[in-house]
Computed example of a mutant assay.
Amino acid sequence: MAGTTRSTTTSGARWQVRPRHPLIPIGAAVAGLAALVFAFEVPHRHSIEDNLTDRTKVALSDAGIDAEVSFTGRDGRVKVGSADEADKARDVTLGVEGVRVVDVQAPPKVEKPPAPPEPIAVKLLVDGGKVTLTGTVPADGDRGKIADAAKQAFGAENVQDDLTVDAKRAADDTDLAGLGAVLAALGKDTKAGVVDLTDHVITLTGTVASQEVKDKAEAAARAATKGQAVRNELVVGQAAAPAQVQTQLVALPTVEFENDSATLTAKGRAVVENAASILKANPAIKVSIEGHTDVTGTVAHNQALSEARAKTVLDTLVSLGIAPDRLSSKGFGESRPKVQGADDAANAVNRRVEFIVQQ
């Protein structure tokens, strides 16, 4: 028989031995090696995964990202809270030594709809036979309608046009030329009157000579808004309430100064004169004059400049006949910005003097 070895004992008995297959020893060796690898690799792999998980969490936390982290071998899975963090989380994780690949999971990015354009915002201040126009309109044509109507009602020499144009503003269905009829109805005897067009609503404040004037102004405002809301807060023959005076003062244009100075420009003085007219019409009102700057320059310099500008306005009001005991001034430097930012537009808004009615 092939593959069989025969042997004979001394007594003559026979026996045979079948040899093992030659691959059996190799298979046993492989199985043993696999067992050793498994016994070593499984706990070692878990150690690697834990190490990568811990170091990745630290790296993401240092980058300001709160995430869930797990690893299978050297392959990571990171779950973040927003789509905006996904790319940064991927870069941070791949930067951790030992990481091979990473799968970053994030909720889908939700695109916010664009904000609707701001509507026209216009304020017309009537006092002492003069009109000051402030606010923003979407086109030069709109600006012309308001300015021409005001000049027709009060005369070109009595109108100060400080309107600005911003094409991003939404068009308004208010009859802007009709605002001239409102001014004409108020007349030159109105004290500290304000025609405020905001969010398609006209608000009337100030002191008028008679109920007839008040009613005519409201009728003209309703015609201009084509039946939309009109708030008639005009007061007949008496001082306005503190809240109304505050509205009138807020409607004033920005008080302008020479660059980096507490010296009023010609326009700035004109605004302070308008404020004086409002205060003369309301002799019981006391006002705090508060100065603010932008962030240009040092904190100490801006604080001193804001105090000096507020004091200039106070002194100018006194020179115009307002009793000193009705006034106080303070400066806040750059500490109370009206809007955030350091660009030219933000700086222009934050450089200001505010008149705050004391209740």
Rank of each mutant, 00 (worst) to 15 (best):
R169W: 05
S210L: 02
G333N: 09
V165D: 08
E256C: 02
D315F: 00
D54C: 00
V78M: 03
G98W: 08
A2D: 15
E212R: 09
D66W: 00
D189L: 02
I120K: 00
A170G: 14
R169H: 12
D54Q: 11
E41H: 07
D196S: 15
T190Q: 07
E233Y: 11
P138Q: 09
A241S: 08
V318A: 08
G129S: 13
A220P: 01
R90N: 13
D87W: 01
A284N: 11
A63E: 11
L204M: 08
Q359Y: 02
E307W: 01
Q238N: 15
A181R: 12
I278N: 05
D343V: 10
I289V: 11
E111G: 06
L249K: 04
S328W: 03
A300N: 12
K57C: 05
G144Y: 05
E218K: 09
P116T: 11
E307I: 10
R222Y: 07
K226W: 02
D172I: 06
V80M: 08
N158E: 12
A39W: 14
D127L: 01
A139P: 02
N302A: 06
A29K: 12
V272Y: 03
A149R: 04
A121G: 14
A308L: 01
H301M: 05
E41N: 10
V236Y: 06
K216P: 03
H44Q: 13
D87M: 04
L204G: 04
S277Y: 03
Q244V: 05
A89M: 09
P119N: 11
S335E: 10
P113Y: 00
A106C: 04
A63W: 05
T134R: 04
M1I: 03
G178N: 10
E273H: 02
V235F: 00
R169G: 04
G331Q: 04
T72K: 13
L234S: 07
T9Q: 05
G321M: 08
H21E: 10
K226I: 01
D162E: 11
A63L: 08
D84K: 08
L176C: 05
Q244D: 13
D166M: 05
H44T: 15
A209I: 12
A170E: 15
Q160S: 14
A304R: 10
E273Q: 13
V313M: 06
V194G: 06
D161N: 15
K286S: 15
G27A: 14
Q244T: 09
T72Y: 14
D199A: 14
T203N: 10
A153N: 10
P119V: 01
T134C: 04
S61H: 10
A304K: 11
S261F: 09
Q246M: 04
A115M: 12
H21S: 13
K109C: 00
R143A: 04
D343H: 04
R352V: 13
E307P: 03
S306G: 05
D162M: 03
V96K: 08
R14P: 00
L320M: 11
T164C: 00
K112D: 13
A323C: 01
D140L: 08
T198G: 00
I289M: 04
P138R: 06
S328L: 03
G141Y: 00
V357Q: 03
H292L: 08
V213F: 11
S319Q: 15
S319H: 09
L317Q: 12
A39E: 02
G297L: 07
A262N: 15
A106S: 15
R77P: 00
N282S: 04
I322K: 09
V250L: 07
Q105A: 14
R352S: 12
S82E: 07
P283D: 12
V92P: 01
V195K: 09
